[in-house]
């Protein structure tokens, strides 16, 4: 027993000595989407600044929101989409950025700045943008596909993959009915119900995380997916063709922001500035080919990357796309509508 006590004491003393000599380490807690910030980039930031970075991932905006709302975790950087920034700004839970610490914001294309969800970019800097569109395996589908109406046709039953995201699916149905994507009311939901009743039984797979898998494996032939996923598929094989739906689609802007509860604001701002560096931003695009809003980074990118229509829609298409607005408690109704139709 004595021996054990002495051992414990020694260990305790050692522990004290170690913690006394260690320099105060700088920290940064990042809470971001999975598959969005490549690990080498995080490592490089650590190496350059000596900041110890921890990364936690989420799979949906709402997952992040619920954790943030519950007060769990002390995050210094979060990565919300535009409609979530809108809600967070409204609730006054974001830290107001010190723009002098983020000079690289000048690299961002002005059309992605000063948006209604954050006028003057007081609280957020754009990370990546993107859109949702149709990807067609032209080996299996010979018809000319122009819009949602061509995807959700009875002859494509069992050949379709779509995002497992109720708000997305409802948006497509609103567009197909010529309705505003942000007017989500009981009336508009009732109006699109017949459309969804036709569409959903045709779907074979719902997958938001990696819809490309079912397309690559040949289990489905056509899909409505994220632009980044579409870009990977068109790069992999020429048989995949990307189509911007004729009925319209929406643009998303994923940004970086700092919650008010952040403990390491300076490191967070340094990280934002780091991410906006042209060569870093290009590296992200190499791995996740979304619409890069960083003009300086685009100068470093190859012609092939810039001409991929799934990553970079042409200007006139881009102009027609609107952004999501926050729908608050209506999200639950949207979820219920899609679940009800799936369960039928």
């Amino acid at each position: 027993m004595k021996k054990i006590n002495r051992l414990l004491l020694t260990l305790f003393a050692l522990g004290l000595a170690v913690s006394a000599t260690a320099a105060p380490t700088k920290h940064l807690n990042i809470y971001c989407w999975s598959e969005y910030i490549p690990q080498p980039i995080v490592d490089q930031f650590s190496k350059e600044t000596g900041v110890k970075v921890t990364v936690e991932n989420y799979a949906s905006n709402e997952e992040m929101l619920s954790k943030l709302a519950a007060g769990g975790g002390e995050y210094d950087i979060i990565q919300p989409s535009e409609y979530v920034i809108e809600a967070l700004v409204k609730e006054k839970v974001l830290h107001s950025l010190d723009r002098s610490k983020i000079p690289n914001l000048k690299n961002i294309d002005p059309q992605f700045l000063n948006q209604a969800f954050d006028p003057g970019n007081k609280f957020s800097v754009p990370f990546m943008a993107g859109t949702v569109g149709i990807i067609v395996n032209t080996d299996l589908i010979k018809d000319d596909i122009r819009g949602y109406a061509d995807v959700f046709k009875p002859e494509n039953k069992g050949k379709i993959v779509v995002l497992d995201d109720a708000r997305e699916i409802v948006t497509w149905a609103l567009l197909a009915n010529g309705l505003n994507i942000n007017q989500i009311t009981d009336k508009s939901l009732n109006k699109i119900k017949p459309t969804l009743e036709q569409w959903l039984p045709l779907v074979k797979v719902y997958d938001s995380d990696s819809p490309k898998t079912a397309l690559l494996n040949g289990d489905v032939a056509i899909g409505v997916v994220w632009g980044g996923e579409g870009a990977i598929l068109t790069n992999k094989n020429k048989k995949f063709r990307w189509v911007i739906p004729s009925e319209g689609t929406h643009l998303f802007i994923d940004s970086l922001a700092i919650p008010k509860t952040a403990k390491n604001v300076e490191n967070a701002e340094a990280f934002m500035n780091f991410i906006l560096r042209p060569e870093i931003s290009k590296q992200i695009s190499d791995e996740f080919p979304y619409l890069n809003p960083n003009l300086a980074a685009r100068e470093l990118m190859s012609k092939k990357q810039l001409e991929n229509p799934a990553s970079f829609p042409v200007e006139e298409e881009l102009k027609k796309m609107s952004l999501f607005k926050d729908i608050g408690t209506k999200g639950s109704d949207v979820e219920e509508l899609i679940t009800t139709l799936k369960a039928q």
């Binding site: 408690t329 999200g331 639950s332 979820e335 219920e336 679940t339």
Partner: peptide
């Protein structure tokens, strides 16, 4: 799955 979705996308933890 529906419980998970109410907690996340539906923003409706009580339900």
């Amino acid at each position: 799955e529906v419980i998970f979705k109410q907690f996340t996308a539906g923003r409706n933890q009580p339900f």
